[in-house]
Simulated assay, not measured.
Amino acid sequence: MTTEATAGTATEPGAVAPLLSASDLHITFPGRRGADPARAVDGVDLDIRPGEIVALVGESGCGKTTLARSLLGLVPPTSGRVTFGGQPLDYRSRALKAYRKRVQLVLQDPSGSLNPRHTVYEAVAEGLRIHKYGGDERAAVGGALSRAGLRPPERFFLRYPHELSGGQRQRVVIAGALVLQPELIVADEPVASLDASVRGEILALILRLRAELGLSALVVTHDLGLAWNIADRVAVMYLGRIVETGPVERVLTAPQHPYTQALLSVLPEAEGEPVVLTGEPPDPSRVPAGCRFHARCQVLAGGAAERAGVAEDCRTRDLPVLSGSAGAQVACHWAVARG
């Protein structure tokens, strides 16, 4: 990690090996009608340790869902690699099947991820049948539903998704992931479609599962408030790269990157005027030179970068990829100049 890309690195917590790690990950997609390839993920290092909850935060289109899908083995990287338990991810079908028993996906829309023709029992048992579970299927399904907060589980076995509330459907989806006893879950906007009264219950459930099962989680979200409530560490993503990362309390109480500051400024509890970013995020097939945020940066537009002597660097000089470690890091010329 070069000093240029950090603004005060926090002390690493004990030398615990990552459970899941991405190293110099790049994912590009062919451009449309002869356009340049889209750099959806453009150099990412990210570690998730055993029992750790990491929030991956950013606007729609920043690449966070593509990154999450790659960590699940659903999108092979163009370059770089993903490792799990210290071993590189093997993309052959048999190896991926074994991997997906250990790493499970929880989608944001329980209505869309549950087959309306399948009972709750069938939905939760599906993973066991795919992986040819040799134990007591009924006991495994009941145990998963109980851990997900649906008790007594037998009461829900023969129900269909349309007979459940939104929160109950999300618990069924979580039970379907838990039934295989994974070591890590990837939750893509896990409470986005739920009422505010239910959101806290689902977040509390994820925290309880971490405490009881030692479960690790990557939570993909656009909501920094959610990250504050659930994560140990946050990684803020913009245009294919992580631009700020660190312990959640440090990043969200003292954000260094102008993009993180802008995202935080619109939360209801934020003090001062919200920062209104101009324009839309750039096209990933046309990543700008220099800092990829500079065209929308309120610090550059307001003259603060000029006063710090880094305005030209902001427009022309690229920043290195942040390491995947747990320390607080930021990819911003202005933040580094401020010390």
Rank of each mutant, 00 (worst) to 15 (best):
D283S: 12
T83F: 14
H162K: 08
K101Y: 01
L205V: 06
T65S: 11
M237L: 07
A289F: 00
S216N: 06
L96P: 08
Q87C: 00
L25M: 07
R292F: 02
H222W: 06
Q108F: 02
D47P: 03
L224R: 01
G279Y: 05
L178Q: 03
A95R: 12
Y160W: 12
D36C: 01
P258C: 10
Q261W: 02
I130R: 13
L213T: 11
G272P: 05
E244M: 07
F156S: 06
R69C: 03
A187E: 07
Q329W: 08
G290F: 02
R100P: 02
E212F: 07
I185V: 14
P77V: 07
A301L: 14
R317E: 11
S70T: 09
Q168D: 06
A192C: 09
V120G: 03
V266W: 02
L180H: 00
G61H: 05
V275R: 05
P50A: 01
A217H: 02
P152L: 11
P190L: 10
G31N: 01
A235S: 14
M1N: 14
A231E: 04
L252G: 08
N229W: 09
V310I: 08
A311P: 02
L67D: 04
S60D: 14
I174W: 06
D45M: 13
L114V: 13
V172H: 01
A192Y: 02
P110K: 12
G167F: 01
S93N: 11
S79Q: 13
A217R: 04
L224C: 04
Q170H: 09
A125Y: 05
L105D: 07
R151Q: 15
A55L: 12
S165G: 11
A125V: 06
A308F: 01
A254H: 13
A40V: 03
V243I: 14
L71E: 07
P320S: 09
R138E: 15
E280L: 09
R94G: 14
L264V: 03
R33A: 15
D318F: 00
H131Q: 13
E271F: 10
